[in-house]
Design a protein around this nucleic acid. Structure first.
Lengths: 198, 198
DNA sequence: ATGAGCATGTAACTGGTTACATGATTTA
DNA sequence: TAAATCATGTAACCAGTTACATGCTCAT
């Protein structure tokens, strides 16, 4: 028990913004962190249950007519303490597994068109992310203009923006590299994987 | 069966560079992708076994005196086909979970010194990564100067460099934001988490 | 002698996603 | 009438890490 998983503490963190149901939390995560974090129900509901068992949150059931009951969770003083001591602990070093890089690394086996399409897709993805960051930023500045923590919240989208721009810059490099690549001898490549052992 | 996991295909990819044992693969991964990808034995050995069962690699045992046998794996034509069709499939959109951002997002609960230390640690981490990328790049240019795929391999480290620099830029922003943050009333904060309900 | 390197593998565990089951209410 | 939204939750699965077990050899 008392795992070190980030999810537990992320949930506690959201509950410092006010009491919420699991459903609420999911929506809030999607709106606030959405682009660089995610929590699924299969993760949220069980951990809320254990948090309750540990006395870090309380649960009060709001009966509603017609629709399912809302199980509203509120953080307890003990929960606040747990969150705070987690916040003081150093963060895990991040490890990014970038699949498209693996595809390029072995790109010698593929043709140039394929490589180009991978880069193109990746660029589109990053552009879409940047657009969504811009929307997040606008919404934050508008809806939370007076929140004292606004600068911190903006920091998270700004991180995404910085990284997204870096990926876009890399895409340009990648295009240049691929353009300069000699197309592998098609006969040879085909021979490797097909008719070889007829 | 025939899962879509990246690991399977990464292993196949490495085997296009030549026959290898699980042990070899691990070292190769650490040296080539090391900084942005990783495979553990607990992952490598079982997947090599299933790859063999599927006929995508062959295994030949090199008996050695004194030390354990080497199980050398070589990619088969079927393996090459599988790899190639994976390479043609689009990559999964990447999802980065940046724990330090979560810590900052709820930073309103922590004191400024803590936030600063998170950023400082993150900066150190990124600087170390950039240094290691630089070493990788140097080694690649030296040892594989004549490899036709060198530009593609360099692309992977360059991606890391681009992103690392972006994170560093963000660290500077973060420092500025934190410096401008009003220190939360300590009495109030302490009261929130401690004596509140005595 | 101590530890690093060689070399294989398994088992237990943590983390996370997806699909399923339920079912009323509102909106298109 | 189809769909999305509200709202809970479980079970099965996939991915990945860590720790363990084994045991010889070579360098310090």
């Amino acid at each position: 028990m008392a795992k070190d998983g980030t999810t537990r503490f992320a949930l506690l963190g959201f509950l410092t913004w006010g009491p919420m149901s699991g459903y609420d939390i999911r929506k809030t995560v999607a709106q606030s962190l959405g682009n660089f974090w995610n929590e699924s129900y299969g993760q949220i509901y069980p951990t809320l249950k254990t948090l309750e068992a540990e006395g870090l949150v309380t649960r009060t059931v709001q009966r509603a007519s017609g629709r399912p009951d809302r199980h509203v969770h509120a953080i307890t003083p003990a929960g606040r303490d747990a969150l705070q001591s987690w916040l003081r602990r150093p963060a895990e070093p991040l490890k990014h597994r970038v699949e498209v890089l693996v595809k390029l690394l072995f790109g010698g086996v593929a043709d140039r068109a394929t490589l180009r399409s991978h880069v193109a897709r990746f660029r589109d993805e990053q552009r879409a992310l940047l657009a969504s960051y811009a929307r997040s930023e606008a919404r934050l500045r508008e809806e939370s203009a007076d929140a004292p923590d606004l600068p911190l919240w903006l920091l998270t989208v700004q991180c995404g923006q910085e990284v997204g721009r870096a990926y876009l810059a890399w895409c340009d490099r990648a295009d240049a590299v691929i353009a300069a690549l000699p197309e592998p001898d098609p006969a040879l490549e085909a021979g490797e994987s097909r008719g070889r052992n007829s």
